[in-house]
């Protein structure tokens, strides 16, 4: 069983540490991980901007890289959701279907497929969990505050296995941070206001770190925290699960 690791473009270029942690974590948990070298991007930036037609090249490239993998895992809820819902290719339909059905977000993979019950990690800090919308409402990584259903959270369950970690949840448990892909630049004012509000809820909890299964949200909140010269840091959940 080979696990193909998909490191989305912005993680590859800007947050390699999250990719490294994901790889090491999966290996620690006994997976045989391959990283197909010609991978780039899932195609979401184009599709979410209304240019789904332009994401064909990315889709083809994605299929070429990952169709041989039994499972595909990526440390990004948003990219996984895009592939799962939208990956298509006229020529390689069965390959596309295989990928759509076998791609997993990292915490989802750990919880549902590897069924991890114990993690040897230590992170002695006060941590706020940011729930990324695509992972949550799209991939159902956790229950959603709008629905009258029993509560659960895959990322939270994993974090609860980490030694020393004190988890604090923000008052609005699953409000969007305002990143939203190109929304963050085309709707700059709203995007930043949403981010500021998220960050201040976490700060009211006196957290030292904000973590999430989605780096895009963290990148946005990190930008705001740094501009405000705050000490709170952001960190991808893989880095916490792989820590210590």
């Amino acid at each position: 069983m080979t696990v193909g690791l998909f490191i989305p473009c912005y993680i590859d270029q800007l947050y390699p540490s999250a990719g490294i942690a994901s790889l090491q974590l999966l290996e620690k948990l006994g997976c045989e991980v391959v990283f197909p070298l010609q991978q780039t991007c899932c195609g979401q930036p184009m599709a979410n901007s209304g240019f789904a037609g332009l994401s064909k090249g990315c889709s083809r490239n994605f299929i070429m890289n990952f169709s041989k993998c039994d499972h595909i895992v990526a440390p990004s809820g948003s990219c996984v959701l895009h592939i799962r819902e939208h990956l298509e290719d006229e020529k390689y339909t069965s390959e596309a279907t295989h990928i759509r059905e076998n791609i997993f977000e990292l915490t989802e993979y750990l919880t549902d497929i590897l069924q991890v019950e114990k993690i040897d990690a230590s992170f002695p800090y006060v941590v706020g969990l940011h729930t990324g919308c695509h992972g949550q409402r799209g991939l159902q990584l956790s229950s959603m505050s709008e629905l009258a259903v029993p509560a659960f959270s895959k990322p939270e369950k994993l974090l609860s296995m980490v030694r020393g970690l004190q988890l604090r949840k923000p008052e609005r448990p699953d409000e969007c941070c305002g990143f939203g892909g190109t929304f963050c630049v085309f709707e700059e004012a709203v995007s930043v206001k949403m981010g500021k509000d998220r960050v201040s809820e976490h700060m009211a909890n006196e957290v030292e770190y904000i973590t999430s299964a989605d780096i895009s949200c963290l990148m946005h909140m990190e930008g705001i925290l740094k501009r405000q010269k705050k000490m709170v840091k952001t960190i991808h959940i893989a880095e916490i699960l792989n820590a210590g």
């Binding site: 979410n48 901007s49 209304g50 919308c133 695509h134 409402r137 799209g138 959603m144 709008e146 629905l147 699953d174 409000e175 969007c176 305002g178 990143f179 939203g180 892909g181 929304f183 085309f186 709707e187 709203v190 995007s191 949403m194």
Partner: peptide
């Protein structure tokens, strides 16, 4: 249609 982050909360409520 672009005035949204596609967070999906609307569909849930």
């Amino acid at each position: 249609p672009f005035a949204s982050t596609l967070c999906g909360s609307c569909s849930n409520v």
